[in-house]
Amino acid sequence: MAASIIEMIVFPGFIFLGVLGMIFEYVDRILYARLQNRKGPPWFQPFADFIKLGAKEDVIPREADSRMFKLAPILAAAAAVVASFYIPMWGGSALHSFTGDAVVVIYLLTIPTVSFFLAGWYSTSLYSTVGAVRTITQLFAYEVPLFLVILAPGILAGTWSLSGMAVFYSQHPLLCLTNVLGFVVAIVALQGKLERIPFDIPEAETEIVAGTFTEYSGRLLAIFRLAIDIETVVGAALVSAIFLPFGIGLGGVLGCLVFIIKIAVVMFILAVFKTSMARLRIEQMVNFCWKYVAPAAVLQLFISMILGAFIGDAFIGGGE
């Protein structure tokens, strides 16, 4: 009991993920800066920001629903942490694992987005409301492709357990190559999920100030930012567990290192993506997702199904 509480709160739970999230926020920011030929922030900047925000007053608008206003950030952070328990990090399996946990993880990762919507909606400010509506519009655009490409590898592996998939693909690393298209789609969808350029439409600062987060300040904003950091790491871990299943089962320090390198690779791709493009308009984003990303995801699904029907039989069951 005590051990599992420590697992949840300290390692590899809340505190570990929070620290890792902030380290990767720094990585993201320094990459963004260096790609732009700037110097970038010092390594402690995310921590300093967090402490500074934590020391400030929470201002809750009079018009806002104070309970929902306070609940939303906590909900977002909690959901992102819980999702991490089902993602295999460096051990053979995740902290908790059961058949079909891939679906649960995707749902849990949707909760932060929904809580952004709730936060914006219950702030009742104009900018927040527009941001909230944009958040939910965008959710419908990237969620379906993400869902499809996360589940597609499961067909070949014969399991919808993330740990099972990871183990299967680490045993048959060549089959990873069939998922390249899925990897690309997952990166695009993840960029949308994390609301980063070119899909930072819900918080586009030159249009709607800070979108959903316009009214947030102090500790609540700090928790929101932490939630986004954790979501980034969890999202990157999810993508790397499924599409880059190398070094699974190494365990110990080496496994941990491989895990962090894999996340860093995903983060690097995300940062380059963010640096090289302009923000799209919401209708351009939805068009793009349904015209190109969703068909690509369906194609990936077909590839997995056909492979599963013809050559997959030999492997099925390997992951259980």
Binding site: N37, G40, V272, T275, S276
Partner: peptide, 22 residues
């Protein structure tokens, strides 16, 4: 084409930053 500036970006990663710490 999307990502027109990519080549320029990668060229600049290794260059010393244009900003200085005043």
């Amino acid at each position: 084409k999307p990502g027109k500036m990519l080549a320029e970006l990668f060229r600049n990663v290794t260059k010393p930053p244009a900003t200085i710490q005043y």
